[in-house]
Design a protein around this nucleic acid. Structure first.
Length: 565
RNA sequence: UGGGGCGUCGUCUAACGGUAGGACACCUGGUUUUGGUCCAGGUAGUUGGGGUUCGAUUCCCUACGCCCCAGCCA
């Protein structure tokens, strides 16, 4: 075995150093801390894989923690969806499921101790007033007139805030740091605000809720987190994270920031994703075109493929936009090994084998997965009338087009060589049917005389089949970077979903189940839609097409035709 | 403009101060009963300018470019 040199990312290097110095007693304990205010997307998947992955690589632990400090935005529905997504991705938080709201009492006590040390005060300024006194990027802020309230009054007021004596927005608890600090986050940040809202877990118990900066470090500290990994935009919150923990003189995890994932031709912001849902551009958070984990799952992505993708994109600090190619490659790479092959015709064109006997069914052997011998074989029914893909026939073929054309012989996969002898058209000139002859000695798909055919096409019997609806997906946006566009609505791809209502698939697929991956030969990977499919009306989603080198050649011919006249 | 980050093939991502490597994408060719897979090969990169050094992607200076921050969101 070759010793594959392990490439470590910068976080692993930090952990290695910490383990060397004994900073955290050789322990690694991470956490994935989603806010339950929306569905998880592929960017979260990167974070999940990072946090749970590091924990397992270093024999550590990773917690799942809901950062539920804002009852106005958060819902239990999201909690359930998030847990399902994390589990589906293949990660286990075991008994370590936590909620920020579990710590509200302890956080309150910590706040009281800061007040007692004159490091926090109750401020009566309105939101607008706070904003005005914060200064800006150039100007320093000015002290709140309530900054020097005495401890007793602060304690009384804070307690009354908690008891619900004041309306929303009338008071805040603020940390007393420095109103002229060059880092805006350090200009007496708000620790608590008054919010009269029903919390998904604590109900009406609280009417004050902690702000992220105050809460997050405490959550990490209380759980004994060693490496608190977050995204780049929190980098200038780290001084505040550190300040709180230092003032409290309590266990102090290390915050580390990495660059969030961006994918081209899609968007990753919960706000915009929600807008797509609300405006009806997609059917929901789990629309197969969405970059959400539930969307990818419904589209037919495997957990392994997403984990492999997360590994491939790496972890660093520079802003990045990963190509969709890589995600699709990850899926194909995984499914190529595990998906059974089957034949399905999406855009059917009828073919009559004129010299094949009427009412005869010829059962032919087909290999389920050439990449996996243990997947075995199956029988495919061949009959006098079959369907082939409409684009597998061309009346006037391009040079290098080696599928069916008038007078040309091709191989029907696992069946026979056929030759096109007649093209039947309707009044409008549309091709409605092909007449072909077959060569009986080529049964199975090879010829005793050794003659070669250049093309092999897939087919399905017109009588021995099952019908299905097939949904083809393409990128949701036309723009490589939709978030940079003025109006994302204008960047939407009108052809992101193409539905084929009447498709024919091998009878074998009557046993198809949701969650199983299939390859429709020569077309792509497909799986049953987990919402709309039923035994009486099968609906397949195309997860990703197969790589298609013909498409490039074809494009070349088309453009040379146009360009060359 | 104050603060915080970041600049390596088209895209991601590596490289104790010592041959700039890998993956995807792209291009060749080979195998093939999927124009798939697989195999072999190729094109392609250190933001600019100084400095230190035998030697700089790496260290220093400087310029330029990009991202984030003025929520009682996270």
């Amino acid at each position: 075995m070759e010793a594959e040199k392990q490439v470590k990312n910068f976080i692993q290097k930090i952990i290695d150093e910490d383990n060397l110095s004994g900073k955290f007693d050789q322990k690694v304990h991470t956490r994935f801390p989603p806010e339950p205010n929306g569905y998880l997307h592929i960017g979260h998947a990167k974070s999940i894989c990072l946090n749970f992955g590091l924990a397992s690589q270093y024999n550590g632990l990773c917690n799942l923690r809901f950062d539920d400090t804002n009852p106005i935005k958060e819902e239990d529905e999201y909690v359930k969806a998030i847990m399902e997504d994390v589990s589906w991705l293949g990660f286990d938080w075991e008994d370590r499921l936590y909620y920020a709201s579990d710590y509200f009492d302890q956080m309150y006590d910590f706040a009281v101790s800061l007040i007692k040390e004159e490091k926090a005060y109750v401020c009566d300024l309105s939101g607008d007033e706070v904003r005005a006194s914060r200064g800006n990027l150039k100007e320093p802020g000015t002290d709140s007139p309530f900054r020097d309230r005495n401890v007793e009054e602060n304690l009384r007021l804070f307690s009354e805030m908690k008891e619900g004596k004041y309306p929303d927005g009338s008071h805040t608890l603020r940390a007393k740091i420095d109103m002229s600090h060059p880092n805006l986050n350090m200009r007496d940040p708000v620790m608590y605000r008054i919010l009269t809202a029903n919390h998904h877990r604590t109900g009406d118990k609280w009417c004050i809720y902690p702000m992220y900066d105050w809460a997050h470090g405490l959550e990490d500290s209380l759980e004994g987190i060693t490496h608190s990994i977050c995204t780049l935009e929190f980098e200038d919150h780290r001084p505040l994270y550190d300040w709180y923990l230092n003032q409290l003189d309590t266990y102090h995890p290390q915050q580390i920031e990495f660059a969030r994932l961006n994918l081209n031709f899609t968007i990753m912001s919960k706000r915009w994703l929600k807008q797509l849902v609300d405006n009806g551009h997609v059917s929901g958070w789990d629309d197969p075109r969405m970059p959400t984990i539930s969307g990818l799952r419904r589209r037919g992505y495997s957990p392994e493929s997403i984990r492999n993708f997360a590994e491939k994109v790496g972890v660093a600090k520079r802003d990045n936009v990963v190509e969709m190619n890589l995600l699709e490659y990850s899926l194909r790479e995984d499914l190529n090994k595990k998906a059974n092959r089957v034949m399905g015709v999406i855009d059917p064109l009828k073919v009559v084998i004129t010299n094949f006997p009427e009412n005869e069914i010829d059962y032919l052997d087909a290999i389920n997965n050439p990449e996996d011998e243990s997947a075995g074989k199956r029988k495919v029914a061949f009959t006098k009338e079959i369907y082939i893909e409409r684009n597998d026939f061309m009346e006037e073929p391009f040079r290098k087009y080696f599928r069916l054309a008038p007078g040309r012989e091709v191989r029907l996969r696992y069946a026979y060589y056929i030759t096109c002898v007649d093209v039947i058209k309707n009044d409008k000139g549309d091709i409605v049917e092909l007449h072909c002859t077959y060569d009986p000695v080529t049964r199975g798909g090879s010829s005793p005389d050794g003659r070669k055919v250049k093309g092999t096409i897939h087919w399905v019997s017109s009588t021995e089949n099952i019908q299905a609806e097939v949904r083809l997906y393409d990128r949701l946006f036309l723009e490589p970077n939709p978030s940079k566009t003025d109006k994302i609505d204008n960047a939407l791809n009108p052809d992101s979903l193409v539905i084929h209502k009447t498709c024919y698939i091998e009878s074998e697929m009557k046993n198809a189940t949701v969650g199983t991956f299939y390859q429709f030969e020569r077309l792509g990977y497909f799986s049953l839609d987990n919402i709309d499919s039923s035994p009486t009306h099968l609906v397949f989603n195309r997860s990703v097409p197969l790589r298609d080198s013909w498409k490039k050649i074809e494009k070349g011919f088309q453009s040379s035709k146009i360009g060359g006249g």
